[in-house]
């Protein structure tokens, strides 16, 4: 029988992150389709609470890799610990959430255990004896189907939100909790963790805004920002931006929406000249009504929008500003 599928979970300060259950949901679907067993894996200095939460799900076992060297997180310790476990028990497929932490160490793990690694996967399907994983290369503009070239161990990481945590089915409580011993004494971490902090000084809190106008690289240069500022004013909105706009210092860093910026859910979100890369979408896709203005009809941003206008923002936005002013009787 093929080796088990492992679903690697991730914990933060508040315990198990919900994305862990997205990985379980995907693992359950794969285990069923492939007739494999599924194990949830906890890596922590103390994994007991996480193990209990995972044991309530439909998994064959919860594997707990516990070691004082696993807190705080360092790539060396995590790589050494999981490499030992993989070498001892040869899982066929190891699933991860595609978090910033996973980006930091899972490629190293793949090199260490000589695994194939398909990262940032949004879906899978089992085609006969081939399991196909779908990715979104070219900044989400295209999809690709990807398969492993060898038997494994093989590694997959899952895009945040691609699978639903709520789909992780509950089990009958029979999942066995297995402690997996690892020996990390010889694998001292070379990374010295100094300080973890949030840059909060004077941060604009966009999460309270009812209306947000967000501007992307399509605006072209800083001198053109007033075009969206006016729209924002007409709408009584807060002005926000995609990452490149902040990187280029056209707007301050604290206006950034997305995985490394703020997460917002206004009633109305107007995305102007934003392509809709996943790292931006995670920060705004739960907004009430989303309007996208983009010259590219295939821009991924349209897939999460309620309304779209395809065209040149330099024509559309000033017109929209005028008509909003009229509609509001301020024109």
């Amino acid at each position: 029988m093929a080796g088990a599928i492992w679903a690697i979970t991730e914990s933060g300060d508040d315990g198990l992150k919900s994305i862990s259950f997205e990985v379980i949901a995907c693992g359950q679907a794969l285990a069923e389709a492939l007739g494999s067993s599924l194990e949830a894996v906890v890596m922590a200095a103390d994994g007991s609470a996480a193990a209990e939460a995972l044991g309530a799900k439909r998994v064959d076992a919860v594997r707990v890799i516990e070691d004082a060297a696993l807190a705080p997180y360092t790539p060396d310790a995590y790589t050494a610990a999981l490499a030992q476990a993989i070498e001892a028990d040869s899982p066929s497929l190891v699933l991860f959430p595609h978090t910033y932490q996973a980006r930091d160490w899972v490629p190293r793990l793949a090199a260490e255990v000589d695994a194939g690694f398909i990262s940032d996967v949004i879906a899978h399907r089992v085609d006969g004896d081939e399991t196909v994983f779908v990715r979104q290369p070219y900044q989400g503009k295209l999809n690709s189907d990807c398969v492993f070239a060898g038997d494994g161990p093989n590694i997959v990481s899952l895009q945040l939100g691609a699978y639903l945590a709520d789909d992780a089915a509950a089990g009958d409580g029979s999942a066995e909790i297995v402690k997996q011993p690892v020996d990390l004494d010889g694998a001292a971490s070379r990374t010295e963790v100094l300080e973890t902090f949030q840059e909060v000084a004077d941060r604009v809190d966009l999460s309270r805004a009812d209306v947000i106008v967000a501007v992307g690289r399509g605006i072209g240069k800083q001198e053109q920002i007033p075009i969206v500022e006016e729209l924002s004013e007409a709408l009584g909105a807060q002005l926000a931006a995609s990452r490149p706009v902040c990187d280029n210092e056209w707007l301050p860093m604290d206006r950034q929406i997305g995985s490394s910026g703020q997460t917002v859910t206004p009633k109305l979100y107007v995305a102007v000249g934003i392509s809709g890369a996943i790292q931006h979408l995670v920060g705004m896709k739960n907004s009430g009504t989303i309007v996208a203005i983009n010259k590219d009809p295939n821009a991924p941003v349209f897939s999460v929008s309620s309304y779209g206008i395809v065209g040149d923002l330099f024509e559309i936005v000033p017109e929209l500003t005028n008509q909003i002013r009229e509609a509001k009787g301020t024109g």
Binding site: A115, V147, A149, S303, G308
Partner: peptide, 29 residues
């Protein structure tokens, strides 16, 4: 390589925006 791309394609649109057509003034209205 350890992984193989078997197909590259334009994703099918499942859900998405209602695209508003027309010249600028009409579409905006």
């Amino acid at each position: 390589r350890k992984t193989r791309t078997t197909r590259l394609y334009v994703p099918e649109k499942t859900t998405g925006a209602e695209i508003i057509e027309g010249d600028t003034a009409t579409a905006v209205a």
